[in-house]
Design a protein around this nucleic acid. Structure first.
Lengths: 217, 217
DNA sequence: ATCCGGCCCGGGAATTTTGCCCGAGCTGCG
DNA sequence: CGCAGCTCGGGCAAAATTCCCGGGCCGGAT
């Protein structure tokens, strides 16, 4: 596209809710300097759209069906290290934030933020800077001050993802199918998560996940 | 507001994510016949806004921090039975759907639906009809093939008590000891509660209990 | 280069729990 | 009285859990 404006920032929207994407698109495009050049609702399409449109910034939710959003970030960054990815999700757990940045994200903004925070973050990420919303900064600050850390800090990425889906109400089979794992592996993770967090009951696990913002109720 | 167009549908938006509300507002208002007259990000504000603006339809997400969305629905309907509430959330569990309708919702649309589905549902609800998105209809259809009851309402006192303790994180043995029952009986109640509510997972049970205000998280 | 430790993925086997059947005692109600 | 519903538990096959194990992979330390 040779006629692309020199000053515009092109954006790829990745979110599994069509209506939510619609809304974002309108909000972003009302800014003047932001153009949504493509949308995707899953990790695979996200990479294809990235290759096809070469956007300046990818705005993506990391809680999507199928492959984990973190996995998608890693995939994209592995093949295109100059990709700028702004994570835009409702989760605000320190573990997730750190995992996202480790995976290669350039920014992290929660959906609880003011709309202006997203726009600001997109512009910062487009300039190659790191960006995060105020609440995320607070979460990370609190986390770095606490000696023991959150109960979820001792969990690996896979464990977090499985805990999220489990607490969300998914059955073991559904999780296994979503993540392409054997049922046995999911069961083992389930058990491991319980022992690591000290939860003696599935209900306690759900409460823990909810308390940490991993899932909403 | 004497200048209100006679043919417009006024909408109150309830969602805890500002940017999401922004987006919905733009999507809905681009329809011409829909006007967003107020927004709220929690249950208490939702009722205040409803009283102040008397909207034709309330579009609300039921996963909000603090008070349960179902509780909010019950509150609003109890005081204003003519209120039309369209639940608009990402959750698609049969238990939640049934609980929402039991609480007094007029419609249920998931965020995975096409934007047009929401608009259609809003218009239907405004006409006093019941509305739901296709995926929700499928979930309910699948669920209704088993002749279970509707939701938490048809639970006996003992069942409610056991569900409360279970959702609170108590183990089967603890519940049995606390209620002077055999472990087997508690297990049987556990199973009975699941079948009556339609929950397929302990996590779904906890979510239902939390959504109904049975336990706080 | 090698070891160590961590995460990831699953198998195996003993133990529990589920899922769903059953009967029995107790209420209240027509 | 008969019927219905709640409460309480036994029984038994099927499934899940609880531990254990090993192997592959990778990054960091020696």
């Amino acid at each position: 596209m040779s006629e692309v404006a020199a000053t515009g920032i092109s954006v790829l929207l990745v979110d599994d809710h069509p209506i939510v994407r619609q809304g974002y698109r309108r909000v972003l495009e009302s800014q003047g300097d932001l153009r949504v050049v493509a949308e995707a609702d899953n990790a695979a399409d996200a990479y294809a759209a990235f290759k096809a449109h070469d956007p300046d910034v990818i705005v993506m939710d990391i809680s999507m069906p199928g492959a984990s959003g973190l996995e998608a970030i890693r995939n994209i960054r592995a093949r295109s290290p100059r990709a700028r990815i702004l994570v835009f999700t409702m989760h605000n757990e320190a573990v997730l934030v750190k995992a996202a940045f480790n995976a290669g994200a350039s920014g992290f903004v929660t959906k609880s933020s003011e709309p202006s925070a997203v726009v600001t973050a997109i512009r910062a990420v487009a300039r190659g800077e790191r960006a995060m919303s105020d609440d995320i900064a607070h979460v990370l600050a609190d986390d770095s001050l606490s000696p023991t850390g959150s109960a979820l800090d001792q969990l690996g990425e896979r464990e977090i993802e499985i805990l999220r889906q489990f607490a969300g109400g998914a059955t073991t089979e559904q999780i296994a199918a979503h993540l392409n794992l054997s049922v046995k592996t999911v069961q083992n993770y389930h058990y491991l998560i319980k022992t690591k967090t000290g939860a003696r009951t599935d209900a306690q696990l759900v409460r823990l996940a909810a308390a940490c913002g991993l899932t909403k109720i």
